[in-house]
Simulated assay, not measured.
Amino acid sequence: MAFQYFGGIDLMEIEGVSYATVLTIISEIGPEGFTKFPTAKHFTSWMRLAPNNKISGGKILSHRTPKGSNRIKTALRQAANAIGNLKDTHLSNFFRKIAFKKGRQVAVSATARKLAVIIWNMVTKKQAYKPPTEYLFLDQKRKMGLVKRIKKQINKFDIKPEDLDFSTS
């Protein structure tokens, strides 16, 4: 039903999103409601999931998410909480990274905001959900850069495997 309602977009492809979440989105905003927001930032701000940065003189005074709730926000927070219990998916890795740094409640809000952005992009741009599986985290990027530099140095100095004496004892 939701697949037909959103014009061929299956929101159930996103891990953690249940039938209840999709039904809440359909009942509260519908597919034409997404077009009222020019960007995903406007959508997340309307749902009160975006941080309210108060800046004075270039210094951030506060960055709390504003108070207020609606049914979509509650449904996305429940989906984000379910994502926190999953193992080894893109969104659960994001959830764990935030939860380790700032706690579970902040991670639920951040993941709910990320879900809202994903859903807004899927519905407005009519594209399927593609999780970034080939994304390299910072440590992996550094490691790849180090390997690349070492290979370059080996080629520069024309070092052969026989020249390196690795003892196995």
Results as ranks from 00 to 15, higher is better:
1 M>L: 14
46 W>S: 10
131 P>M: 09
21 T>F: 00
142 R>N: 15
102 K>A: 12
86 L>E: 14
135 Y>A: 15
168 T>E: 15
116 A>Y: 05
69 S>G: 11
68 G>V: 08
136 L>V: 10
119 I>N: 03
122 M>N: 06
59 K>R: 09
33 G>R: 07
123 V>P: 04
151 K>W: 06
141 K>A: 03
43 F>A: 01
73 K>A: 05
127 Q>V: 14
126 K>V: 07
147 V>I: 14
7 G>N: 07
125 K>F: 04
19 Y>E: 15
113 R>C: 11
156 K>F: 10
106 V>N: 06
123 V>M: 04
58 G>T: 07
4 Q>H: 15
67 K>D: 12
77 R>D: 01
157 F>Q: 09
60 I>Q: 09
127 Q>H: 14
60 I>L: 12
154 I>K: 11
84 G>A: 07
157 F>L: 11
112 A>F: 01
128 A>I: 02
119 I>F: 01
41 K>A: 13
101 K>G: 01
72 I>T: 04
19 Y>K: 15
54 K>C: 00
131 P>K: 09
122 M>V: 04
7 G>H: 06
113 R>G: 06
128 A>F: 01
73 K>M: 01
159 I>K: 09
48 R>S: 05
114 K>C: 02
152 K>N: 15
104 R>K: 15
50 A>G: 07
140 Q>T: 14
25 I>W: 07
134 E>C: 04
25 I>E: 06
42 H>I: 02
47 M>H: 13
36 K>R: 13
106 V>F: 02
67 K>E: 13
60 I>N: 06
87 K>H: 13
72 I>R: 01
83 I>V: 14
113 R>V: 00
20 A>F: 11
13 E>H: 12
126 K>Q: 15
3 F>C: 10
90 H>S: 13
141 K>S: 03
49 L>C: 09
159 I>H: 11
162 E>D: 12
145 G>L: 08
146 L>H: 08
23 L>R: 13
151 K>A: 12
82 A>E: 07
111 T>D: 07
124 T>G: 09
116 A>R: 07
20 A>D: 14
10 D>L: 04
150 I>K: 11
62 S>C: 11
104 R>M: 08
46 W>K: 06
34 F>M: 04
43 F>H: 03
139 D>L: 13
146 L>Y: 08
114 K>S: 02
114 K>Y: 02
150 I>C: 08
80 A>G: 04
32 E>W: 02
70 N>C: 15
56 S>M: 06
86 L>W: 08
54 K>D: 05
16 G>T: 09
28 E>D: 15
122 M>A: 05
162 E>L: 05
142 R>Y: 14
23 L>K: 13
92 S>E: 12
72 I>F: 01
46 W>I: 00
156 K>Y: 11
61 L>C: 00
